[in-house]
Computed example of a mutant assay.
Amino acid sequence: MSSQLVSLQWLSDHLHDSNVRILDCRFALGQSHSGRDAYLQDHIPGAFYCDLEQDLSGIVEAHGGRHPLPDLDELAAKLGGIGIDADTTVVVYDDQGGAMASRAWFLLRYLGHDKTFVLDGTYSHWKAAGRPITDEIPTPTAKSFTPSIQDEQVYHIDDVKKRIGQPGVTLIDSREERRYLGLEEPIDPVAGHIPTAIHSFWKDSLTESGTWKSGDEQRERFSDLNPDDEIIVYCGSGVTATPNILALREAGFRNVKLYAGSWSDWCSYPDNPIAKNKGE
């Protein structure tokens, strides 16, 4: 499969495939138990729960952002523990428009596991289509997951600083436009954006019905970008940047990086420059 996505029908057809693992990534910011509670109530058969803050993020420190990358050895051990190895196809889903699922997708790809896909549609789409659900917790058969870290996929603050304003580099801010413009900042202590960043709201990756836009639609969305550029994507904390990374991949862009700490890391350094207008 050349796409990063699988359809509801594909997953339905492969629910009982022993070499497919499903990750339920539902999570609501500020309601840290809601995703797990929803999973315990019902989920796609065979799905294991994957928590944004417990499994897909590390310990928050003074710098590094609100959702730093997790310890990769610990994550690899967790993935192996639920039966994922190099031959396993992994499908991830959420009920947040793909934001949390994309974070899991990105991390598994960062660990070198290219057989990872996001469900094209949310859990609500799955239920509305009358697909099977259950409250049964699957019993894992552990395997050995050996990570192969793709270091070139992730940038940290020094990498970003070196590239601001450089030719052949495009920086994309994935947050709501009002946050990008510094008109409001409901989460982080400082408002604004990283200088030279352009704006592309992550939810523009989706159709009005909440499924993913096609590759052609994503190419049209990013038609102003140079496909030869190095593209660095960030958001508030490194979560909602990942749907944009997936969309860029669907559009055919390959030289795409995640600024892992994102705005919450950038603004934690008081000397870092801050812009508030388009084109700055």
Score class of each variant (00 low, 15 high):
2 S>H: 15
4 Q>T: 14
5 L>W: 12
6 V>N: 10
7 S>Q: 15
10 W>T: 14
10 W>M: 12
13 D>W: 10
18 S>H: 04
21 R>Y: 02
21 R>V: 13
25 C>Q: 09
27 F>H: 07
39 Y>M: 06
41 Q>A: 09
44 I>Y: 09
45 P>K: 10
46 G>I: 06
57 S>Q: 02
59 I>F: 07
62 A>Y: 10
68 P>V: 00
69 L>Y: 03
71 D>E: 13
74 E>T: 15
76 A>E: 04
81 G>S: 09
82 I>M: 06
84 I>R: 00
87 D>T: 13
88 T>H: 05
91 V>A: 08
91 V>S: 05
94 D>C: 07
94 D>H: 09
95 D>I: 04
100 M>N: 12
104 A>Y: 06
110 Y>M: 01
111 L>K: 06
127 K>Q: 14
131 R>A: 14
131 R>W: 10
137 I>H: 11
139 T>S: 09
142 A>V: 00
143 K>E: 00
143 K>G: 03
145 F>M: 03
148 S>R: 08
151 D>A: 09
151 D>I: 01
151 D>F: 01
155 Y>N: 04
161 K>Q: 14
170 T>H: 07
172 I>S: 09
173 D>N: 10
175 R>Q: 12
179 R>L: 08
183 L>M: 14
183 L>S: 13
186 P>K: 11
186 P>M: 09
187 I>M: 10
188 D>E: 12
190 V>Q: 12
191 A>L: 13
193 H>Q: 10
195 P>Y: 13
207 T>S: 12
209 S>R: 11
213 K>E: 08
215 G>P: 01
216 D>G: 02
216 D>W: 00
217 E>R: 03
218 Q>A: 08
219 R>Y: 02
219 R>C: 00
220 E>Y: 05
224 D>I: 02
226 N>Q: 08
228 D>P: 01
230 E>M: 09
230 E>N: 01
231 I>T: 03
232 I>D: 04
233 V>N: 06
235 C>H: 00
238 G>I: 06
239 V>N: 04
240 T>K: 04
240 T>G: 01
246 L>G: 03
249 R>D: 04
251 A>R: 00
251 A>M: 10
253 F>R: 07
253 F>D: 07
260 A>I: 02
262 S>P: 02
263 W>A: 03
270 P>I: 12
271 D>A: 15
272 N>V: 11
277 N>L: 14
278 K>E: 12
